[in-house]
Every structure is written in structure tokens, then in C-alpha cells.
Design a protein around this nucleic acid. Sequence first.
DNA 1: TTGTAAGCGTTATCAA
DNA 2: TTGATAACGCTTACAA
Lengths: 345, 345
Amino acid sequence: MARTTDNASASATSANSSITNVAALANVSIATVSRVLSGKRTKDDDIARRVRAAAAHLNYSVNYAASALRSTVTNTIGLVIPTANDPFCAQLLDEIEPVIDVDSQQLLLGIGGDQATQIQRIESLVDRHVDGLIVLPAWEAYLSAELEHYASTLPIVQVGGRQCSFRTSMVSVDENAAMEIVIGHLAERGIASVAYMAGKEISFESAELFTMFHTQMRAHHLATETEWNRFGDRSVQRGFNCAMRLFSEPLVQPEAVVCADDAIAFGVMVALHSLGLRVPEDVLVVGYNDSPIARTTMPPLTSVRPPFKQIVSEALRLLNDGPDSPAHISLAPQLIVRESTNYQR
Amino acid sequence: MARTTDNASASATSANSSITNVAALANVSIATVSRVLSGKRTKDDDIARRVRAAAAHLNYSVNYAASALRSTVTNTIGLVIPTANDPFCAQLLDEIEPVIDVDSQQLLLGIGGDQATQIQRIESLVDRHVDGLIVLPAWEAYLSAELEHYASTLPIVQVGGRQCSFRTSMVSVDENAAMEIVIGHLAERGIASVAYMAGKEISFESAELFTMFHTQMRAHHLATETEWNRFGDRSVQRGFNCAMRLFSEPLVQPEAVVCADDAIAFGVMVALHSLGLRVPEDVLVVGYNDSPIARTTMPPLTSVRPPFKQIVSEALRLLNDGPDSPAHISLAPQLIVRESTNYQR
DNA sequence: TTGTAAGCGTTATCAA
DNA sequence: TTGATAACGCTTACAA
């Protein structure tokens, strides 16, 4: 019997205490301590309380390296994103980090703007034996082979983009629903014609959206013109240029503009302003991503808000389900209605 | 002698090979393998080559958990930021991640928008035994006690903000140099008067900058008015409002506006545009942070670019120096001159 | 339900 | 230099 009560609390509140110290102080074996603290022992009797008290008193926290070495989990989640300088990625980061941390897990971050770098990051994280991997593919990054290769070892969830592998799970924004909500909202406002400034974004299937735009327009009997609707980058400049071209001609003009990104919408609003057109009285404008910019435009911008909280919770749930049950979950976004569409025709 | 050459390559290219497999294949002891692969054995003789070849052949990579358990390093760096939705933080993330990864280290990310959350994140990361900790304090987060407490255990580098502790290292942007460069640039353009829209940012000592603004203005014999210069948030709206107030009155008006953030500058430019004032012919505008927005304003915005690469390399160097030699490094930013100040009076 | 003891894969120690 | 071996702190059979 190695139970020693004497001098057990000698090194109290010293941070570098191991499970042995806790066991000694609680007067139980290290196995019991391990079981109580890891939740493998459900009863909340005197022993459990003694262990927890001892752990608290010694300011004990498990050594993750030792834990990971012996068991099969590392309590880490890997996240690979193309860049932090993207409103979708940044908002997702802000949403996912606290959720992971309350699980007493940690977030290992990999950033890669192209296919090669993303593959490197994925391999690094797999080497670290992360418990799960969440990947936001970079624009034009084909990660199929990579993801398939690790899909059997490790639960992987892809977020957004073109689906890379049917062997990994995927969570994405339901772009069809997004467009339905946007066009429905504009139809309710009494709008007759809409222009669409499409994009080619990370989080977003542009072609699918473009198709859905026309489907929804027909469904609501709204008008559009081929030359109104273009693919392009999602910069303020692009929105400005497109809107200047569109609204400075004395031809027929759309009563509303739907943009694939808030930045484009911002550019559109600046252009309209400089042309003497008022938002929303003359033209309604809708953005996408509900980035911080949407709250600070003048007037504030109605924008499609990706369901970040749901994306995060579904992604983590799919990771927990393990690699054997891949699923594709599509989540409807929410339309945040602000001043830029607050006008009834 | 436990050297076995037979069936050593049986499990070749199987990913889950340990140091034992490598040792067997290379016909040396595991200790030698460890020394060769960790660089503790400098010679590049036949043994070293054999070991490396075996490791490559078996697709071996060290088990970080085991390595961390035995040695004192985990090959992880902790980074705590207030939010990813901030251009300074986002750009720093994009810069720091690749530098860490080439060191075959990994980035553990903690996000906390307030003092309590940041303290939690710091504690989580310390529990994980990160080799070093980089902290960007949140606005009004006082982390002194926390940082001091861990400063002896762990190298900590604070980036930006008010200095929390003299026992930890710090890397910051030299705001005095920033203001000197900005005002110097405007003076060269032949400007006579300048307004300053100060901020209260994460990466940025507003009061210090405000003082330096006046110092530099005097040094260059430029004029300013008390009511031109206000503290405030760094939103587009704020810039717009301030500029509208400033430039719609028929009083004396500044010939240039310096802003504590690109977003403010953007708002200013929108306001000027709507008042019929041209940038840069009528008013010069300077931003701060050189965020993606600066390249997409119309015209493109001259902006102070924090020296991200240097901040990253200095922070990592200070981490490597260990916790015993705290230093404060102040790095001069660079002025990215674009169209918004490209006008000679 | 508890304690004992055997590893997990690596690095550090020490003797050769 | 090298190899044998003892930790590192934990989890998990297995036995009590």
C-alpha cells in the first residue's frame, strides 16, 4: 500500500504537480484519480469529491502529452483555412474557437492560400494526431486525394467550397435557400427588376447561386437583364465599377442589386451615392456574409448572414461521429434586414 | 545486440511506424535514430544517411506527444488574439502561421475579446505546455498579473497594446515613427494643415500617437485646430460623420486628414466625395493598418503598414531567447503611398 | 469499484 | 560516438 497522507500537501499549489500528488493527497490510487477526472467514473461519492478537491488544491491539470501518448485522443482539433483576411473565415474562427475551448480541447490552426500549402498544413495536423480536422478549401484547391487518404484515419469535415470527397463530411451554406430568401424579400418590397453581381468566393458556389438567382427571379416574376449580371471579384472597386456602368446609362435600370459580398455592395452604394441615387428609395441593395462592414455602411446594409453557429456545431458534431459516417449538411442562412432594403414600392 | 535486419522493411510505407522500426531498418539503436533526426548529431556520415533513408522509406515522423512527454518542449506556440475580425490581427495571423510552420512547430490559437476570456485562453495554453506564448491584449484587458505569473515558466511576448509587464518581452509598432513618416510625407506634398481622427485600437497607443501628432505638426510648421482632432471608434460611419461635420462648414478646413484606421479613412473619403471634394486634389487622406480595404478604395488609400514580417520574426526570436531576457522592441512601420496623397500643392 | 502494473514512443543518462 | 535502459505522466487491462 503506497498510500501516504503525510507531506502530501507539502507542494500544495505548486503548478507542476502530477497525478501522483493528487492520488497521494486524496488517499487513492492514480488509477482512481484518472477515472474520476476523466469522467469514467460517474458516481459522485466521497472518493470522487476527495479527488476533485485534491486536484483543485494542487492546481492540477492533466499533462496532455502523456494523456495523448497513452490514449488515442489528443484533445486537439485542426482547422485549415485559406486566410484570416476573409470575413467568412474570420467570423468562423471567432465562432469556433470558444466552442472548442469549452470542450477543453484546443485549436491547431493551419493557414494555406493555395492547394500545396493547404496540403502541407493538413499533413502537419495529421502528424500531430489531431482528433478531427476541419478544412475550408482555398479557391481552386483540389484536396480530394488528400482528404480521401486521411478520411479513414481521422474524422474530416469540409466547410464550404466544392465538395472534395464523398468519404468526408461536409457542412455548407444552403445557397439556394439564400437566394430564395433574398429574392423573396425583394419581391415583398414590391421590386420589379434585380441585378446580380456574382462572385467566386471561398465560401460560396458562384455558379449554383447564379442559376438559383434566375430560378427565383422567374418564380417571383421579376425581371433582369443578361448584361446586368456578371461574375467578378468581390472588391469594393468591382462593385463601384459595375454600378457606375449600370446606373449611369439612361437605359432601363434595376430597382435592386444583389451582391455576392458586402464589399461589392459597399462599392455599389458608393457609386449610387455619387450618381445621386438614393438607397433604398431609388435602389435597394443586398450584400452577403454579414461582415462587420455591413453594419457601418450608409445606410446599413441588408446582408445574408451565413449560419456560423450552426456551421460550427454541425461540424463539431460530425467530427464526434467519427470518420465512418460521412454526411453532407446544408444550412440555410438568415437575412439580416437593415436600412438598405427598407423601402416599400 | 538487438539489431535485426530481417523483416525490418515489412511494414514499409505504413504510416504508423515508430522510431523502433526506423532503428531496425537502419541497423542502429533507437537512441541513434533520435539523435540523428533531432539534429543532436551533427556528423553526416554513413550512419546518419542510413537513418534518414530509413525514416523516409518508412514515412516516419516523430510522435509529438511522446516527444513532449519526455523532453521539455512541445513544438507548439500559443497565440492569443482578441478577434480574427480585425485587420491587424488577421494580417498578423496570416504572417505568423507560415513562419511557425516551417519551424515544424504548430500554432495553438486562443481567441478572447475581453480580459476574462483572454486569461482563460492563456491558462489553457500554459496547461498545454506551449513553448512560447504570444499575446495581443484585448482592448482594456489588463493581463499584468497573468503574464507576470507565467513569465518565469515560459517565454511570453506581448504584441501591441499597453505594456502589461516588464518581465515579459514586447514587440510593438513604433507609433512615433509612424506619425513622423505620415506628417513628413504630407509636409513634402506641400500641405499646410492637417486633421487627425484618432482611435482607440488594439494595435495602437492612441494617446501616444495623439501627442506625437502634435509634436510632428509643430516640427513641420503645420497647422491644426483642436476641434478637428477627436478620439473615437474606428468605423466607416465615424469617419463619415466626422468628415461631414468638418467639411460641410464654410470655416477653415484642413488640407489633409490622417486617420487611425483605414475604415475611418474610407468613411472620410465617402463623405468628401458626397460633398463634392476630390481626393487628393482638394484633400489628402491617410489611413492606418494597410488593410485589404486600402487597396480597394477610390482612389486607393495611402496607409501606414505595420511591419508584420518584422513583428513576427522579432516575436519568435524573443520567444527563442527564453523568459530570462525580456526586451521591448519597437518597430517602425512603412508608409504605403497610393493615390489618396498623390498630389503636390 | 478499486489498486496494481504494463505499456504508449520518445529523449536523457550513463557506461562502454 | 554508441547502445542499453530508465524515465516522462498518463490510461487501461487485469486482478483483487
